[in-house]
């Protein structure tokens, strides 16, 4: 059975095309592009909320997009135990909807970070099955608000439920930092309790093709398809 997927586009999304190509090339299945004002979502295996600056990041990153018409359908999709992946701004939107815990605040050093970063998996879930323990992935980040925060009670829950999917780590270059944006416990991506919703700041859709510097982003889709 072929893998079906969809990408939601909001005004200000700028990685929706990349996400569409990522899905088309790697899943070889049907891929839909859905405008945020739509009120229905086709039955698909995976929905991606892409990166960008939805609604200009007004008020808070992801705040406006989390109130878009399509979001009710996105929540239904997730409640139906199907996969939902929020990348960068998509991760911010998922926390604003409340599907994921915590919030993403200003990077600790106030810099917009647009560079390669290194991550490894923390706890196993269906999004990182094809990634080996301690395997270091090189995936780019491009964000201003990627500093993951939650209170200590929530952090304990995330650990106890094994919801931390990815953490930043030192990579092969000597100048790379262990925790690029000041995130709590260097968290780069978390899932919900049921582990069918993943939010991550790094962009796997910018690391899959031969013309990309790294192809490590493939492993996420390969994990889901396997």
């Amino acid at each position: 059975m072929s893998f079906k997927s969809a990408v939601i586009t909001f005004p200000g999304s700028n990685c929706d095309r990349d996400a569409l190509c990522y899905l088309k090339d790697l899943t070889k299945g049907e891929v839909h592009n859905i405008w945020h004002e739509e009120t229905s979502l086709p039955k698909v295996d995976l929905v991606i909320l892409p990166g960008g600056f939805s609604f200009g990041d007004y008020l808070r990153s992801g705040a406006m997009a989390s109130k878009s018409k399509i979001i009710d359908e996105v929540v239904k999709h997730a409640n139906d135990n199907r996969y939902l992946l929020g990348i960068c701004n998509g991760f911010q939107i998922l926390t604003e909807i409340g599907l994921l815990e915590g919030a993403l605040i200003r990077n600790k050093k106030l810099k917009f970070l647009g560079k390669n970063c290194f991550i490894k998996k923390k706890f196993k879930n269906n999004f990182n099955l094809s990634i080996k323990d301690n395997q270091i992935l090189q995936i780019p980040v491009a964000h201003n608000e990627g500093n993951f925060y939650c209170d200590s009670e929530t952090l304990n829950l995330l650990k106890n439920n094994e919801q931390i999917a990815f953490e930043y780590c030192k990579g092969e270059f000597s100048n790379t930092e262990e925790n690029i944006n000041g995130s709590l416990e260097a968290i780069a991506g978390i899932t919900n309790k049921k582990k069918n919703v993943l939010g991550m700041m790094p962009h796997p859709e910018r690391a899959y093709s031969d013309f990309h510097q790294s192809q490590d982003g493939r492993l996420i889709i390969e994990s889901l398809i396997s």
């Binding site: 008020l59 705040a63 109130k67 919030a103 939650c150």
Partner: peptide, 9 residues
């Protein structure tokens, strides 16, 4: 509660 403030932060 609905929009203007994110009470987590």
């Amino acid at each position: 509660k609905k929009l203007l403030v994110n009470d987590i932060i």
